[in-house]
């Protein structure tokens, strides 16, 4: 047996370690790559379907911000918005939820 054959024999005799870490990595890959794995995950979490439909939490945050802004503009429109609406439809109507006259009774009486 020459040197090279001895080397081959030594290489063949070496133990082959398969660590738990390697097995865990391989199994994680297998789970991630298994066909249908994503679909099964979605079915197991039905409460998230609205969030997923809208594109996840970042998109949902944008929708909520837009809703709050719209509500605020409706309740207290800036002057520029009122002017724009008046130009657009010719007239505008202001509605006051707390008329000034109604507030007079809240004022403290002034003696004298």
């Amino acid at each position: 047996m020459n040197d090279l054959d001895k080397m081959f024999a030594q290489a063949l005799a070496e133990p082959v370690p398969v660590s738990d870490d390697l097995m865990a990595r391989v199994m994680a890959d297998a789970q991630a790559a298994q066909p249908g794995a994503v679909a099964r995950g979605a079915v197991s979490q039905p409460r998230n379907w609205v969030c997923d439909l809208l594109g996840g939490w970042p998109a949902l945050g944008g929708v909520l911000a837009a809703g709050v802004t719209g509500l605020w503009v409706g309740v207290a429109p800036p002057a520029s918005v009122e002017g724009f609406v008046a130009t657009l439809i010719g007239t505008t109507q202001a509605v006051t939820f707390l008329p000034e006259a109604d507030l007079s009774y809240l004022e403290e009486p002034i003696d004298g």
């Binding site: 290489a11 063949l12 070496e14 082959v16 370690p17 398969v18 660590s19 390697l22 097995m23 990595r25 391989v26 890959d29 297998a30 790559a33 298994q34």
Partner: peptide, 30 residues
Amino acid sequence: LPRVMGQAIRMLHDRGEAEDVAQEAMLRLW
């Protein structure tokens, strides 16, 4: 995996590299 790891470590004689090769080969199988 033991067969794949054995082939890799006998060619490379480097445990870290052999593990990377074994993982990549199995990923291609999946």
